[in-house]
Computed example of a mutant assay.
Amino acid sequence: MLHGRMQPDDKDAVMRRFTAGDVDVLVATTVIEVGVNVPNATAMVIMDADRFGVSQLHQLRGRVGRGSAPGLCLLVTEMPEASAARQRLGAVAGTLDGFELSRIDLEQRREGDVLGQAQSGTRSSLRVLAVIDDEEIIAEAREEAARIVAADPDLTGLPALRTALDALLDEEREQYLEKG
């Protein structure tokens, strides 16, 4: 049994032993969410699963069943059946489709500031549209915007649009858009 703080070399040794099958049970924090590939890991129990978001639960669940044996992930909670947390856990338990789960996550957390750093919540730079409800319109608008910018990158032919963009975009938002 390991107690206290572990040094990096100790952690590596434990992971090597777990990967090799010398250790049957690994108790870990969510640090295992990404970057851990142990094909012989087949079961995971997530205690207080209601404390995690949809995408994090999906990432954690993806750590088991990576080898030839199927995986099992148990989401443990004491939240009431009718709670939003239980609905979230039910959604994760109900599908392995990451795209469907991202849609559920977006519906629950909202889009946040799509041109900035606020990733969820009531603050949004969208005034008339909602990402989930209007995805077709948004896709069409994106295609049209790409066509316009390809034909006139500085928007010299559309001075009103250039003025509106200059008023909307501060340096941070402009850099965000330039990243693609």
Rank of each mutant, 00 (worst) to 15 (best):
T42A: 05
V54E: 04
A151P: 01
I32M: 04
V114N: 06
V128N: 10
E178R: 15
V149T: 09
D10S: 07
G180Q: 11
D24T: 12
G157R: 07
A28E: 03
A85M: 08
R88I: 11
V54W: 00
L168I: 14
E171Y: 02
M44P: 00
D113M: 13
L115V: 11
R17F: 02
R103I: 11
A150D: 11
Q175V: 07
V128M: 13
F52E: 04
K179G: 09
T30E: 08
D50L: 07
A20E: 13
T156W: 00
V34Q: 07
I148C: 03
K179M: 15
G112P: 06
V76D: 05
S124A: 13
R63L: 01
D24H: 13
L106C: 03
R88P: 00
A84M: 12
D152L: 04
L165V: 07
V76L: 15
Q108M: 15
E174M: 10
D113R: 13
T19Q: 10
L75F: 10
T29L: 07
A41V: 00
R16K: 13
L74G: 00
L161V: 14
Q108E: 14
G35L: 07
L96I: 09
G116N: 09
D48Q: 09
P39F: 05
R147D: 14
I104V: 15
G98S: 03
G67F: 08
L165D: 04
E171T: 12
